[in-house]
């Protein structure tokens, strides 16, 4: 029962201390390899070099949704099993998810300017990612508004679960809204499958960014555990002095 073993924060800290240097190394190597492959990849015959934004944009867009799934699993861990590390995991994941979503939005916007001629379009996908970003920010605000960490964890867990149910509904309704109001001029038709020269760098970058998330997540969880220890020590010190 690895998950039960990890419930002990000290054991978790010891394990991640051994794991993190390797993870950092592998992530850096993969990221370099992916960037090099992306650099070598051929330009698109229509979009030219701007298509290379995709190698950053698509992995971030994937992660923006993946992080919410991770937080949903952590929320279940908090509410159902009261796993002590689950709320740490959920809290550490929220700003990372917001950051990945933000990068996806910004790169998408920068990509849209040369190809679509506009920084922002109320396209269904962009709109639902923007709403996802707002929900990340709301979740972070909720984390910060409650002082007691375990109570904040349970409130945030409920909001995460509600979001997990609602995000598909929002996505569906935004799709519906967009197709009703404007013709599908920007949504490109399926087209041919991605050529291997582009697909392979994309997959490497996706793996590199996923590892980046794992590395940052573990590091943020370590920081959160240490932050809580410092807080507890300060409280004990203050109580002792009083």
């Amino acid at each position: 029962m690895a998950l039960i073993d990890l419930a002990n924060p000290t054991r978790f800290l010891a394990l991640t201390a051994r794991l993190l240097p390797w993870l950092i190394g592998v992530t850096a190597l993969l990221m370099l390899a992916g960037l090099q492959q992306a650099y070598m990849a051929p330009d698109d015959y229509q979009q030219g070099a701007t298509v290379k934004i995709m190698f950053v944009h698509v992995p971030n867009a994937w992660l923006s949704m993946f992080v919410w799934i991770v937080m949903t699993a952590a929320a279940l861990g908090t509410l159902v099993w009261r796993h002590p590390l689950a709320d740490v995991a959920a809290k550490a994941a929220a700003p990372l998810g917001a950051a990945f979503t933000f990068v996806a939005l910004v790169t998408g916007s920068l990509w849209g300017r040369p190809t679509w001629g506009t920084y922002w379009e109320w396209d269904a996908r962009m709109t639902s990612v923007l709403i996802l970003f707002l929900m990340y920010l709301g979740l972070i605000a909720l984390w910060r508004a409650v002082e007691d960490p375990s109570r904040a964890a349970r409130a945030a867990a409920i909001l995460t679960l509600v979001g997990a149910i609602n995000i598909p509904i929002i996505k569906f309704s935004v799709d519906w809204w967009n197709t009703l109001h404007q013709p599908a001029s920007l949504i490109r038709s399926g087209g041919a499958a991605i050529h291997p020269t582009i697909l392979i760098p994309l997959l490497i970058m996706a793996l590199a960014f996923s590892l980046l998330f794992l590395t940052l997540h573990l590091a943020a969880m370590r920081n959160e555990i240490l932050r809580r220890r410092v807080r507890t020590l300060q409280m004990m010190q203050a109580a002792g002095r009083a």
């Binding site: 508004a145 509904i169 309704s173 935004v174 519906w176």
Partner: peptide, 21 residues
């Protein structure tokens, strides 16, 4: 929460988007 009001709007409005649409 002490400052519930503003947070309430931030949390609830994104969830109400389907109803509005």
């Amino acid at each position: 929460l002490r400052r519930g009001g503003l947070l309430l709007a931030v949390l609830v409005l994104p969830l109400s988007i389907p109803v509005l649409i």
